[in-house]
Nucleic acid binder design. Structure first.
Lengths: 235, 235
DNA sequence: ACAAAAGTGTTCTCCATACACCCATGT
DNA sequence: ACATGGGTGTATGGAGAACACTTTTGT
């Protein structure tokens, strides 16, 4: 086995958990995927999707695993938010928990999954009291999401491969909880030259139909390499 | 003792450490406080100031304690940056480490302290190879510092109570590693109406002397409460 | 006199904002 | 015909960026 010396024996050890703030978006607005906790303590109360890190993985891997276990989803955008460590934050034991936020295309998460994983999409503005410090985690995650959304194209992770400009605008309005002028928004987005009009139309929300666009990831990569610093939104 | 049930017994536990990225600023530029590691493994190599969290404290408290133990300093601006958890990041044992950055007025950290604590101020651009993932921690901390400095008055934590406008400008130039136009900078800073000219002058860096200003914290608090969103720097 | 740093205003450009009407289509 | 959401252009204001000379004083 391990013949290396092992140091730091004199220091305490702690359980380390990850909790996932899972954002989704549809025509109703920005939502979080929540569950009723399935084990003690606090069984049955509203909770984020969480789990414990184990010895064979790092935090990113633990977060991915937990997300997969709780939702079946893989390869989604995830990012560490911050670590919560209040001594009594979890009444079950001393646990240090690392919050991650995830952005998923809500249409990939089909209705059967919500049954299978006993998960519920809840509008951000209707989030109930959650266990422990989970409401604070949500708050920090939202701040981070807004910050990212101002200068990164993270928003597209919440939409399908193709999307309409009205949908994209609604997304930004939901993220920043504000109204945006339609003409200014479209001008800004199209002038960045990072959206490709597929020529196809989407008719589910209007008779006239709205053009479907996709995000030009290749071009975005190139431009950022060249020092281009885009601005997707400003207060 | 504790008669509460204890949950999660089946999960692994981990050592949890904090590492502090301590920023200081003087006429030479932006610096970090580093030390040669005092214990195994990697004794004698360059390292951030770090230590282990214990059961009676949370991470913020651990970071404060470590900062005090390593530098003697208290009540400085500190902020959690992010958590590092690669399985073999520390060859001594499995350790999850939480990076904190601290901003201190370098003049409060007198020369005797650097001897007493065997700490060295090193210019950011001369940072050597550090142990483990500490260079990455520094990188993340700098990104966070820049982000904060754009819309928060964190910079003032790196200066004394009173400071000259040229010194403030040099600070922003050091943080963002760029040149700033003197007139535009002064115009912006004074137009925010958050700096108070004390009427006194500082002569150490010029014959003419430069006015000493102080930051109007009270006014800043009031204005932010009213929704004012200042911009202290923009790319 | 001169070197060295402090201090001072104006112009231009660009980007964010505000704002109102026509278009396409299903009913 | 009309209701619904999609799509379009222009004018204005404010903030950032560029830019050069005078002031003070110690040597």
């Amino acid at each position: 086995m391990n013949t290396q010396p092992t140091y730091y024996q004199e220091y305490s050890s702690f359980k380390v958990a990850v909790d996932c703030i899972i954002f989704g978006f549809d025509e109703e607005g920005l939502k979080l995927l929540l569950q009723k906790r399935k084990f003690e303590p606090c069984r049955g109360e509203w909770s984020l999707m969480g789990g414990f890190m184990n010895s064979e993985e790092n935090l990113d891997q633990a977060a991915e695993r937990v997300l997969k276990e709780c939702t079946g989803l893989e390869k989604v955008y995830m990012e560490q938010v911050m670590t919560f460590s209040e001594i009594s934050r979890d009444p079950g034991n001393r646990v240090v928990s690392v919050a991650y936020f995830a952005l998923i295309d809500i249409r990939h998460y089909v209705k059967e999954s919500t049954d299978k994983y006993q998960a519920v999409w809840i509008l951000l503005k209707d989030i109930p009291k959650l266990i422990f410090d989970h409401n604070e985690m949500v708050h920090k995650a939202l701040i981070r999401l807004r910050q990212r959304a101002t200068n990164c194209p993270v928003g597209f992770n919440l939409l399908s491969e193709t999307f309409t400009l009205p949908a994209l605008q609604q997304l930004y309005e939901a993220i920043f909880d504000c109204k945006i002028d339609k003409r200014n928004f479209r001008k800004k987005m199209t002038s960045m030259d990072l959206l490709i009009n597929t020529g196809k139309k989407e008719y589910s929300s209007s008779k006239k139909g709205a053009f479907l666009y996709c995000f030009d990831e290749k071009k975005y990569e190139e431009m950022t390499k060249k020092g281009y610093n885009p601005n997707f939104f400003s207060l």
